[in-house]
């Protein structure tokens, strides 16, 4: 019967003779030290982060250098104003938004609805392709006594239902008052799409993440206005900043009879409407 050679490693460092004595023990010791050190580093780093977070939860604004280009988001608070009485329903805003933000076909970050209301209060509401191709004259079969266009977009609510229920903290509201989606975190569950009472969110058909109006955050942080506001030929849409002295929109909000959509929901929207009527909802 042939003998099977037994390697030293099989019986560990204890029985293998002088060269390998204590090898495993040393290895384990070194390993434990390295592991301990890395864990300690991680814990220390996290402790520093936690301290930062504790500071951040205080009233004082935190690191001012979040934006490399010198934009200071603590100095802005954006509001939006739509004057329904001025809107001509041309759809320029919808086309501009779509091109600016590469919005997928048949999805809209802003859109225009047409309301045609009869004396008895019956309303015909349409928004073919979000109003992107304008509106066609059409028959309603009703005796129309009131008609208007109703542009819509994300209201950038102060108390946002969509942010509150996001299970992965992908939706948030910035310090300057814009509700955004972190597409790298969004899992596309669609809760926010259901939660938004204004219908302003959708699931992007390609990325499968929630998508919505960003108030052209890439433009407003560079001192530009939003694509939709710039495109509007009749100034039915205006972007304002409550923290700017002498802001035109802030002045209108302060002096005129502006309304918000669905105030009963207590979402505290930052999109204000002039000329809103009871049928518009």
């Amino acid at each position: 019967m042939p003998t099977i050679p037994v390697s030293n490693s099989e019986c560990g460092g204890g029985c293998g003779g002088a060269p390998s004595a204590g090898t495993r023990r040393d290895f384990l010791k070194q390993g434990a030290k390295a592991l301990g050190a890395s864990v300690a580093t991680i814990i220390l780093c996290d402790m520093t982060d936690l301290t930062k977070m504790a500071e951040a939860s205080g009233a004082t604004p935190q690191r001012a250098n979040l934006f490399a280009d010198g934009y200071d988001w603590t100095k802005h608070s954006y509001v939006y104003l739509v004057d329904i009485r001025k809107c001509i329903g041309c759809g320029s805003c919808v086309r501009a938004c779509s091109r600016e933000n590469n919005v997928p076909p048949a999805h809209f970050r802003t859109w225009v609805e047409r309301y045609r209301v009869s004396r008895s209060g019956e309303a015909v509401i349409d928004s073919t392709n979000g109003g992107m191709d304008g509106f066609e004259p059409s028959q309603t079969g009703l005796d129309i006594t009131k008609a208007f266009f109703f542009p819509k977009l994300c209201c950038h609510c102060t108390h946002t239902p969509c942010v509150q229920l996001c299970p992965v903290c992908a939706s948030y509201r910035t310090v300057d008052g814009v509700v955004l989606v972190d597409e790298t975190r969004c899992i596309g569950c669609g809760y926010c799409v259901q939660a938004c009472p204004y219908g302003s969110r959708f699931i992007h058909p390609e990325t499968h993440t929630a998508s919505k109006c960003t108030l052209c955050y890439h433009r407003i942080t560079k001192g530009m206005t939003t694509a939709c506001v710039q495109a509007c030929p009749v100034e039915a849409r205006m972007l304002g900043d409550m923290k700017q002295v002498g802001d035109k929109v802030a002045e209108i909000i302060a002096t005129q009879r502006v309304l918000i959509l669905q105030p009963e929901l207590l979402t505290d929207p930052n999109c204000y409407y002039l000329g809103l009527t009871k049928e518009a909802r």
Partner: peptide, 21 residues
């Protein structure tokens, strides 16, 4: 968590996009 329960790098990612218009 730097400014709230969200990834604050996402804010600068949004802001960094190139304007089309």
């Amino acid at each position: 968590g730097e400014y709230g329960p969200y990834r604050s790098a996402s804010v600068t990612e949004h802001a960094a996009r190139e304007p089309m218009h």
